[in-house]
Design a protein around this nucleic acid. Structure first.
Lengths: 333, 333
DNA sequence: CGTTCTTATGACAGCGCTAACATAAGGCAG
DNA sequence: CTGCCTTATGTTAGCGCTGTCATAAGAACG
């Protein structure tokens, strides 16, 4: 157990070369004679040398961090985005540095400030919308900024995702074309979740175009979940018993709605149609595959990471990558 | 848009004090006159100064990182652990630095090496078991090491979790006491997932004590999921039609099994009992709450983080914190 | 065989910050 | 008022690494 950590100097001394040579071998940079490289490698091995990246970052003014800001770890959606980011970063030297905002704009701002202190080469945020200060920090940081999930706003640099407003609108059109007329809506607290609100607005717009409006809507306090979906659908049906379709803010809630129908003996689709959002695995695993909108969270994360690596300097122009979505017909609507 | 980032020196110059004074104000350390503090604060504000933590880390030889190594982001289990870690770290200056191994021991080793390069003050790993080198690196790093989830091994420093072997054993005892005799098992690839194997072994041991053995078992290739659970239960029933209880490696799979029963018209519990593991929300949201073992992943993460903060130096003695588990009777077994 | 190019290595300064010690300016007991 | 303590601030010397420029020693060339 070495009482003190070996540094470049120790390795250099042991290998009989200068520090910079060791540095070059370790980083695989610059021309190095095979024999020297071997000698340095052995010295590194012998001492168990681990480079100090704080020093490296300081000296080169280029950290290998990518700050990642996600709203929540309560369901599988953002872990999937994170997986995509890791996938996109695989093989690169970059390391994600994660912060979780719990859908709180002020917290996002704090987290951003603390991430910026590590001199990241980029910030990837799935935060819904930002405070003024957050946006200014992102802009002035000068590093690459990817804003994930939704493309309904005006990006600082790069946006990757799709229009949630359009997705909501298309859902409405789809359901109307399938003959549904009496719509109920099951949502959650959307003061925090701007994208949920966009989808809702799109849905309502599609209904309005067809001369329709929501026959009832309920919102759960707190995070969405299957259990909340079960309870909320019961509540919705209490308030608006004659709806023919229930649109849920997401699949978690919709799956819960499906369970309510099972328990209450409601014929799904013929008695009451169910429609979700996200395209989660669980929704496709229930006996009647959930009718929903599938988006590819993994892809969104991966593309963001890849684009950033491909172009580490912030370009002059902002860009939007539309990853699209797909309406899954399913068997519940 | 400042073309160059302001440093301590810039702030010091503007505030008319020395660098160290600014440093002290920023870190809230040492005695500072209220008037000076105010002046520095304003200068920081004016310049939009963000401290460079790489420099701070280097100068103080104490980074604020905690390396976190998790096996997977494919289901909600480890994101919950991560949430617990963030919760335990809230209010502290420490920042998690996350790596994901995909249940690969070699990858865990690589990730560990790269995390150690940031001079973390601790490593939290939920990796099942480690390579020799990984264990040596952990030992020699000298920093605090928390190994999460299972306590069946011999910890490097601190272990937080419970005995999966015991949980498997207790599950078996519980089911036997409820009258089940013909057991089937639905698993996944457990070469990677040591804990799943421990539970299996505990289950088999409990059966053996009662003079019983598994009447059938199936294993899915690849990760567990509800869909896989549906398919695998069908397969199991093909091979061993007369089992009276199916034990699943986890709740994801068990919920899938429940769906198979729904589709195939099998009476859950009376026709076939189902038993899971984890105590996920989704299992408790289905119409018949799943009989399962509930563990508290959030708590495991939080306790690990709290213990590390409370004692930042590695103590002489290793310690094990048993967070326990609870058999949820549920309605499916 | 001098000149130029290429390959391999080194010297040196400095990245931005903080620990440790030093200093200055009151306050106050005796 | 002298000496000592407390509070507030400054000086100095690195932390461990990498960018930049310099140097040395062949190789290639005409």
């Amino acid at each position: 157990m070495p009482p003190i950590k070996p540094t470049l100097t120790d390795v250099a001394r042991l290998a009989g070369v200068s520090e910079i040579t060791v540095s070059r071998v370790v980083r695989g940079k610059g021309p190095i004679a095979a024999e020297t490289r071997e000698r340095v490698r052995r010295a590194v091995e012998t001492l168990g040398y681990v480079p100090n990246r704080a020093a490296g970052t300081l000296a080169s003014a280029a950290s290998l961090f990518i700050g990642v800001i996600l709203p929540s770890m309560h369901n599988i959606v953002f872990p999937e985005v994170l997986r995509g980011i890791y996938e996109g970063l695989a093989g690169s030297p970059y390391q994600p540095l994660l912060g979780v905002t719990e859908y709180n704009r002020e917290k996002e701002q704090e987290i951003l400030a603390s991430l910026l202190a590590w001199q990241p080469m980029a910030i990837i945020t799935a935060g819904s919308d930002h405070t003024e200060t957050t946006r200014r920090l992102l802009l002035e940081s000068g590093v690459r900024v990817a804003e994930l999930m939704d493309t309904d706003g005006d990006p600082v640099d790069l946006a990757v995702g799709f229009s949630h407003r359009q997705a909501g609108y298309d859902s409405g059109k789809h359901l109307i074309s399938r003959g549904y007329r009496r719509f109920g809506y099951v949502g959650h607290d959307w003061d925090a979740d701007r994208r949920a609100r966009f989808r809702y607005e799109g849905l309502v717009a599609a209904l309005a175009e067809a001369g329709l409006s929501l026959a009832g809507e309920v919102h759960v306090d707190g995070p969405s979940s299957a259990k909340a979906g079960t309870e909320m659908l019961a509540k919705l049906l209490g308030a608006a018993p004659d709806i023919d379709v229930a649109v849920f803010v997401n699949d978690d809630m919709a799956v819960g709605g499906y369970f309510h129908c099972l328990s209450a003996g409601i014929a799904v689709k013929d008695g009451l149609a169910l429609f979700g959002f996200n395209g989660l695995d669980i929704g496709q695993a229930i006996p009647l595959p959930l009718s929903t909108v599938r988006s590819d969270r993994f892809l969104i994360g991966r593309i963001a990471a890849e684009r950033i690596i491909a172009e580490p300097k912030r370009p002059a122009e902002t860009a939007i990558v539309d990853t699209g979505y797909e309406i899954l017909e399913g068997a519940t609507a």
